[in-house]
Nucleic acid binder design. Sequence first.
DNA 1: CTGCCTGCAAACTCTTTGCACGAAT
DNA 2: ATTCGTGCAAAGAGTTTGCAGGCAG
Lengths: 154, 154
Amino acid sequence: MTSPAARDKFRSFLAKKGLRMTSQRLAIFDAALGQAEHFTAEQLLEHARAIDSSVSRATVYRTLPIMTKSALLREVDIGSGEKFYRPNQEGGDQQVAQVVCVDCDRIFEISAPFMSWYGNTVSSKLGLTPVSQRLQVSAQCDTFRRTGSCPRRG
Amino acid sequence: MTSPAARDKFRSFLAKKGLRMTSQRLAIFDAALGQAEHFTAEQLLEHARAIDSSVSRATVYRTLPIMTKSALLREVDIGSGEKFYRPNQEGGDQQVAQVVCVDCDRIFEISAPFMSWYGNTVSSKLGLTPVSQRLQVSAQCDTFRRTGSCPRRG
DNA sequence: CTGCCTGCAAACTCTTTGCACGAAT
DNA sequence: ATTCGTGCAAAGAGTTTGCAGGCAG
């Protein structure tokens, strides 16, 4: 079950924005925060429906932006057509790089403390001020290439 | 007009792969290499049709992967729904960061030689070997914010 | 001639939206 | 009571694909 603290954060965010707490939003919230790995909208729908079968795809898509704006989720776009999301843990590192394994399709997030410096360096050459940035690395799994199985895949 | 050298490169790539040179592929090729800025599939279609009106959308979409595999074009995904492409100049820098201006929607590419080091560092922590990487920065235009017009927009 | 290429249109994937009903405040 | 939120299904955007005919090699 999701932590009461996070649930309160969600509730107060909704209240602050004049939005209502509904059973569907709560189901989606619990489903999202219960995920260990990155997940897609479709996967979130599936898990939310396990909690409340009345949840619709439309509501998932309408709730996702609410949760990202409230900083409960982070959107992770790896340029693969569909967007991924992941819980944004309290006090989480905002300077992260995504490493996408081309063999197991898994997304790893690694602290990248120097990224803001990179962004500033690169933007200042253009007279621009960075708003957000991401470092995305596609990488292959050495073990998989050798043994034919990715050790992280299980 | 496109350089004969690049056209030869395209021709020999096609030959090597057992693919045929057609008037449509040549029109798409010339249209693509004639672009100064990043362009979308739709924009490429438009320009290719100005050269050969028989070019279809399907052929553009079928030719784009051929041109990216032959390293004549580079795909630039800024996570905006549609993909962008740009000519990949001979001896071009593979270590580039994309800076997307949120005010003028333009995409700038900046040499970022530190990136490969960072990709290696980050990947090795996971036992992975980097295949490709990109730093993507969203930035705002200071001049635009002050004066209401982006100096690069003209 | 063989079989790769083509245009057309339909299909596909992911996401967004209009509508009328239902529920939270 | 008011609104806002919802499910449904249709609409969108961007891209891919099946098919029958056409052209390169």
